[in-house]
């Protein structure tokens, strides 16, 4: 079982407390009605399905209840970072470099 750092609680806790919530940094468009069918389908359905480092959302369901973002390697399940919702997307190259140290 992996352990996940909740950026709100500041604690590293067992995976059982958390729920996966899909790919991160997909913003619901400001005015959905202005979206074309293609744009809306893209927002609803298209996902990266990454093999490797993946930007994704988790919810500390059985803790503080907050949604947050993470970069996890989908092959090794290694978490490079977790950060609060709304914070900018971290630079992947920098993350991987730091992880290699």
């Amino acid at each position: 079982m992996i352990q996940i750092h909740c950026p709100y609680c500041g604690e590293t806790l067992p995976e059982l407390e958390f729920a996966y919530a899909g790919e991160a940094h997909i913003d619901r468009p400001e005015s959905p009605s202005a979206q074309t069918d293609e744009e809306w389908a893209e927002f609803l359905f298209m996902r990266q399905n990454v093999k490797g480092p993946h930007f994704e959302r988790w919810r500390h369901l059985h803790g503080c209840g907050r949604f947050f973002n993470a970069v996890r390697n989908t092959i090794t399940d290694r978490f490079y970072i977790t950060y609060k919702a709304g914070e900018p997307r971290p630079d992947l190259a920098t993350l991987l470099e730091e992880d290699n140290k």
Binding site: A21, D27, R28, R59, L61, G65, R66, F67, A85, G86
Partner: peptide, 13 residues
């Protein structure tokens, strides 16, 4: 509740 929290926290904070 999860769905409401999701919209509230991440789309309409």
């Amino acid at each position: 509740l999860n769905m409401m929290e999701d919209y509230l926290q991440t789309e309409w904070p």
